[in-house]
Design a protein around this nucleic acid. Structure first.
Lengths: 145, 145
DNA sequence: AATAATAGTTGATGTGGTCAACTATTATTT
DNA sequence: AAATAATAGTTGACCACATCAACTATTATT
């Protein structure tokens, strides 16, 4: 059904709006923009990622990556460390403060999402998770081709 | 299950990234940014919407709304028209060119989404649509409270 | 040892948004 | 009906954030 595809695309756009930079009343995540939050998340998930690793994961140029890291470092959420293996590379471990802000943002957002979904039964929640999983997996497979 | 909520949130973020301003290799929609596309879409869906209607729908300030409309008008996708009922209000009908670009972007994006989902059977597609529908409805209900 | 490649930084620049002050029009008050 | 308030939109000054191109520093290749 081609019409389902169009509907799905439109729904995904709404979700992208709401959970992206613009929704949530413009307030994303403590003192972080959505982009900064995603960068911090990447740094957190992938211990020992370099500056460009993060930039690549987020579709940024080299200089864009540098500048995101600048902001996160200025806010005290990560630190730059030259790699011992290759002094050209900067590793950007997340600081304790960074971990804390991540966790508190996630807590806050999860509480909000819980509120949004509170009228749905747990079976439906499960189904939502499964479906989104399939969707994101399909997207990621498509991206890496 | 609280853990499901956290998973769902994380998945929604991925979707927001991919379908928002950043994913799609930075290229959103012809010569439109994601924001511009959403504004055009609002103008298209809601015939006779004013500049602020669009701004409100997208969480922008008055001046931000003006500037988005500037850009869309400069690109020839909408035109400003003073309302006959209230000369303070600007209506922003979508031009033919605007409708065409909308349609071609949607075509293109739907084709891409179709590609992403091509390995899923039609039952699953149906399920994805239903689940996203429930999700977006829940979000919208929550927003208007 | 010379050259190329890679990681990251920086200055100039462009885009895209906000705030505050403005104009023009309509609604309300006395 | 004149004065005042409210509303829609615009504009200038400004700030946040990304890019490009040119740069430094380090490592790999010839």
């Amino acid at each position: 059904m081609d019409n389902n595809i169009a509907d799905i695309y439109s729904l995904l756009q709404e979700i992208a709006w709401y959970f992206g930079d613009h929704g949530l009343g413009g307030e994303c995540c403590a003192d972080l923009s959505f982009v900064e939050f995603m960068a911090l998340k990447k740094a957190y998930e992938n211990k020992d990622s370099s500056i460009q690793d993060i930039g690549n994961a987020l579709n940024f140029t080299k200089s864009g990556s540098t500048r995101i890291i600048d902001r996160l470092e200025n806010k005290g959420y990560i630190i730059r460390e030259r790699s011992a293996l290759d002094a050209r590379v900067c590793c950007v471990p997340v600081t304790i403060k960074g971990t804390e802000v991540m966790k508190s943002v996630l807590d806050e957002r999860n509480r909000e999402l819980n509120e949004i979904l509170k009228d749905l039964d747990s079976e439906m929640i499960e189904q939502i998770k499964d479906v989104l999983d399939i969707l994101v997996t399909a997207i990621q497979r498509h991206e890496t081709i």
